[in-house]
Design a protein around this nucleic acid. Structure first.
Lengths: 221, 221
DNA sequence: AGAATAGTGTCTGTCAGACAGTATCGC
DNA sequence: GCGATACTGTCTGACAGACACTATTCT
């Protein structure tokens, strides 16, 4: 019950917010303004505020809306990182969440405060991150990849209207390997018939045969 | 910052401890002695004590050792249950863990304090459980099943020495469906060559051809 | 016509379930 | 030998990757 041995741990949420840009998986990083690790890049996150947040998910949305001025279309709990020694301020418990962000709205975020927020390559975390966020980020990337590997569609990374080729390319970038077009579409028809639907009469045009546009079918998350 | 709106949530660990008995998946329940839900059966668990526990996993082991007089051979974090309203005492965050227990040591636990601890059928949770533990248990069962479905072997539910038929039967009980012997063993050879090994010269004998005994290869968890 | 990409059909090798066959014990 | 279960080999159907073919636009 002394100051060094508090009865409660710090409870925080950390968010790995992923999108796709320049053919790479990107993650949102913020520059820490306060100690510890002031000036270091870190995953966005913040302390749970029981008087404001009904659930941890509420905390995630509250914290991220301040940083994004936009709401998150998809959030998923991944796991916790906890212990007496991972934060110099004391016993901390942080719950990692993975979130997805549409690639066509990157600018709305990146343009905000360039010196404080940036989209970094999620798979080349060259620089040091605050706390144990390097490990945390690795787990989040792994979670994303596993989800797609098991057949989940990262629809929330895409624009509202997208082509199947875009969807496939997104999966390929996440997985880091190329997929067969025919097999990919066969699987879509068999397993994801209820997740996406054609937008009748709308096509993406270019120097080629027009591509059917699709949209995600809204499920409650 | 008032008494009604504390700055910190309760942080607890809950444990779904599974084993196999009478051809069924069983889970350990304890009878609550204190309010709220006094007299109700619940999943074992307890509050994190930052001055005693280096990590949440330490808390799990500390809490369970008091109830089992035995250590847990396998513990895995599953997910959190949290919110302002799930515990009448206030904002609570409990981290669910799944643990496995060897079927040949059930008695060592069940015999302790029969009125306070019992092994209940994990898939027929007929009676009401304290808090939201019914949902919590469902998630834990689902986690166990998913793991085995994806190919994990629930080796920690088995005795130290076991036959492949026992291992297969255990998987079948968890999955709730029968498996093909030939395919099961083929997969063991291909994917789990490093996880189990024969105990040379040791066999399970009965009114039949003796069955080779195997043991789990120790990995750090 | 030719380039470019969308979208589809077919082939084929791989893998997993089905099932039958062989092996080895107790009685 | 018979019952019982351990263990193994082969067949086959489903599925997924490979790849080629057709379709439709712009230039």
């Amino acid at each position: 019950m002394s100051a060094e041995k508090p009865l409660f741990p710090f409870v925080t949420v950390d968010v790995a917010l992923f999108t796709i840009d320049e053919q790479r998986v990107k993650v949102l990083l913020v520059k820490r303004e306060e100690a510890p690790y002031a000036g270091c890049w870190a995953l966005p996150g913040g302390a749970l505020k029981p008087h404001l947040d009904g659930t941890l998910l509420d905390a995630v949305h509250r914290v991220m809306e301040r940083k994004l001025s936009a709401s998150l279309p998809w959030v998923e709990e991944v796991c916790t990182f906890n212990g007496a020694n991972r934060d110099p301020r004391g016993w901390s418990l942080s719950v990692l969440h993975m979130a997805l962000f549409p690639m066509d709205r990157i600018q709305a975020v990146a343009g905000l405060r360039v010196s404080e927020v940036k989209w970094a390559d999620a798979e080349l975390p060259l620089e040091a991150l605050a706390f144990d966020h390097r490990r945390v980020l690795e787990r989040a990337v792994q979670h994303l990849r596993n989800s797609v590997e098991r057949g989940a569609l990262p629809l929330q990374m895409l624009p509202e209207k997208f082509t199947l080729t875009q969807l496939q390319k997104t999966c390929e970038i996440v997985l880091g390997k190329s997929l067969d077009k025919s097999a990919f579409r066969r699987r879509l028809k068999e397993l994801h018939a209820g997740d996406i639907e054609e937008i009748e009469g709308e096509f993406e045009r270019g120097v080629q045969r027009p591509a059917q546009l699709w949209k995600a079918v809204k499920h409650r998350q």
